[in-house]
Simulated scan of single mutants.
Amino acid sequence: MKLLLLGFVVLLAGCAGREPEVRTVRVEVPVQMPCRLPVVAVPAWATDSIKKTDSLELKVRALLAERRQRIGYERELLASSRSCS
């Protein structure tokens, strides 16, 4: 029993004589950031400027132009929303 106690004391004395090891550890943790994007501007739609008295050809051209505008606008909105996710 005394031998066991003596061994335990020697073991503790060996641990007490060492300097504690100090080291810096870098830990990377993801941090949520608020998504701040510029607001996508609504274009001036091509059909806003047509009148009832305009020709059918002019109205169809305006509708086709507005369709292209809408496709572009939707793509900008999708790109904006995907960049935050």
Results as ranks from 00 to 15, higher is better:
Ala46Ile: 01
Ala46Thr: 02
Thr47Lys: 06
Thr47Ile: 10
Thr47Ser: 10
Thr47Trp: 03
Thr47Asp: 03
Asp48Leu: 10
Asp48Ala: 14
Asp48Gln: 10
Asp48Asn: 11
Ser49Arg: 10
Ser49His: 07
Ser49Pro: 02
Lys51Trp: 11
Lys51Pro: 02
Lys52Leu: 14
Lys52Ala: 15
Lys52Ile: 13
Lys52His: 09
Lys52Asn: 13
Lys52Thr: 15
Lys52Val: 15
Lys52Gly: 15
Thr53Gly: 05
Thr53Arg: 09
Asp54Cys: 05
Asp54Met: 03
Asp54His: 08
Asp54Thr: 04
Asp54Lys: 03
Ser55Met: 05
Ser55Gly: 15
Leu56Arg: 07
Leu56Ala: 14
Leu56Trp: 08
Glu57Trp: 02
Glu57His: 03
Glu57Asp: 12
Glu57Cys: 00
Glu57Phe: 05
Glu57Thr: 11
Glu57Pro: 01
Glu57Asn: 04
Leu58Met: 05
Leu58Thr: 02
Leu58Ala: 08
Leu58Gly: 00
Lys59Arg: 09
Lys59Ala: 01
Lys59Val: 01
Lys59Tyr: 00
Val60Ala: 08
Val60Leu: 07
Arg61Cys: 02
Arg61Ser: 02
Arg61Val: 04
Arg61Asn: 08
Arg61Lys: 13
Arg61Met: 07
Arg61Ile: 00
Ala62Gln: 03
Ala62Val: 00
Leu63Val: 11
Leu63Asp: 05
Leu63Thr: 08
Leu64Arg: 09
Ala65Gln: 10
Ala65Lys: 09
Ala65Thr: 11
Ala65Met: 08
Glu66Tyr: 02
Glu66His: 03
Glu66Asp: 06
Glu66Leu: 03
Glu66Thr: 03
Arg67Asn: 14
Arg67Gln: 15
Arg67Pro: 02
Arg68Ala: 15
Arg68Glu: 15
Gln69Pro: 00
Gln69Leu: 06
Gln69Ala: 06
Gln69Asn: 06
Arg70Pro: 01
Arg70His: 07
Ile71Pro: 03
Ile71Met: 07
Ile71Gln: 09
Ile71Arg: 02
Ile71Gly: 00
Gly72Tyr: 01
Gly72Trp: 01
Gly72Arg: 08
Gly72Ala: 13
Gly72Thr: 09
Gly72Lys: 04
Gly72Asn: 12
Tyr73Trp: 09
Tyr73Leu: 04
Tyr73Val: 06
Tyr73Pro: 01
Glu74Asp: 14
Glu74Ile: 12
Glu74Thr: 12
Glu74Val: 13
Glu74Ser: 12
Glu74Met: 10
Arg75Gln: 14
Arg75Tyr: 07
Arg75Phe: 06
Arg75Ile: 04
Arg75Asn: 15
Arg75Lys: 14
Glu76Asn: 09
Glu76Met: 13
Glu76Arg: 12
Glu76Gln: 15
Glu76Thr: 06
Glu76Ala: 15
Leu77Trp: 03
Leu77Lys: 09
Leu78Lys: 09
Leu78Gln: 13
Leu78Ala: 12
Leu78Pro: 02
Leu78Asn: 12
Leu78Val: 14
Ala79Trp: 05
Ala79Pro: 00
Ala79Lys: 10
Ser80Tyr: 03
Ser80Phe: 01
Ser81Phe: 12
Ser81Gly: 03
Ser81Pro: 02
Ser81Ala: 13
Arg82Leu: 15
Arg82Cys: 05
Arg82His: 13
Ser83Cys: 05
Ser83Trp: 07
Ser83His: 06
Ser83Asn: 06
